[in-house]
Design a protein around this nucleic acid. Structure first.
Length: 266
DNA sequence: GCCACCGGTGGC
DNA sequence: GCCACCGGTGGC
């Protein structure tokens, strides 16, 4: 029987499969058709069909349907989108403006499937997380984070967060920005509750009494007031993110409309 | 009714 | 001329 092999497609989200079927007869015998299957099993036989389904969850501009790979720089011949389509423009139908919200495309900070190498039986394969928590670290390594700033696409430096007044740093560098880095790192890397340095001796002589599994931060207590304050910040941040995404969608819709009108009068 | 499969054609 | 895309249908 002919191979009906569905292979993983790394350029698409996890679970998507690619299949290539060779035509066995007819004038086009020997040519092949490429199909994709969503994680739920839905079949896709063209790039436009794939785009419609994925919406703004992924940018397929660089995706090569035949090979299944991203081809950076090859701004794919994407301009046959005004091809006759009875469902769309022809009989006064509304253009497909696709106002779905765009979502982040980089998921690198989230858990991702990894390839487990088992070529050598008995080998132990450590995950990155284990490596990060088990390896020895430099004392006061947080100092290397000093001066790091996030910036937006225009290179404008973004304002750093304000920390609650109850948080104070410990050690040779007591500026607020390395305190923020230290706490943020601890929250991401550590699997134990973050309490700060609970030993009073650590404040006097940190090089000796430092608890290395805790950030360079004096012990603190979290009050209900602190929690309410932070929840309000999260709420405001969500609201402004929503507004930014909505503005982006409207801009895309306007761009689509402009292109459609140009295509019509051309 | 579904769908695997090949034909036909528009856009390049 | 090539080929991406999708229509149409024969076989189940």
């Amino acid at each position: 029987m002919m191979e009906r092999k569905r292979t993983d497609c790394p350029a698409l989200p996890p679970g998507w499969k690619k299949e290539e079927v060779i035509r066995k007869s007819g004038l086009s015998a020997g040519k092949s058709d490429v199909y994709y299957y969503s994680p739920t099993g839905k079949k896709f036989r063209s790039k436009p069909q794939l785009s419609r389904y994925l919406g703004n969850t992924m940018d397929l501009a660089c995706f090569d349907f035949r090979t299944g790979k991203m081809m950076p720089g090859k701004m794919q011949k994407n301009k046959q989108k005004f091809r006759h389509d009875p469902h769309n423009l022809a009989k006064g139908g509304k253009p497909d403006l696709n106002t779905a919200l765009p979502i982040r495309q980089t998921a690198s900070i989230f858990k991702q499937p990894v390839t487990k190498v088992t070529s050598y039986p008995g080998n132990k394969v450590k995950t990155d997380l284990q490596r990060a928590t088990e390896q020895p670290r430099q004392l006061f390594w947080e100092r290397r984070l000093k001066g790091l700033r996030s910036s937006d696409v225009t290179e404008q430096v973004l304002r750093t967060m304000d920390l609650p007044k109850g948080l104070q740093s410990v050690g040779p560098d007591s500026s607020d920005d390395s305190l923020l880095s230290a706490i943020a790192s601890a929250l991401h890397m550590s699997s134990v509750p973050i309490t700060g340095q609970t030993s009073v001796a650590a404040e006097k002589n940190p090089s000796i009494w430092l608890n290395t599994s805790q950030p360079l931060c004096k012990a603190f207590t979290v009050t209900d007031e602190h929690i309410r304050e932070q929840e309000m910040k999260v709420y405001k941040a969500r609201r402004s993110l929503e507004e930014a995404l909505m503005a982006d969608s409207l801009a895309r819709a306007a761009e689509n409309t402009r292109e459609l009108l140009e295509g019509k009068t051309a």
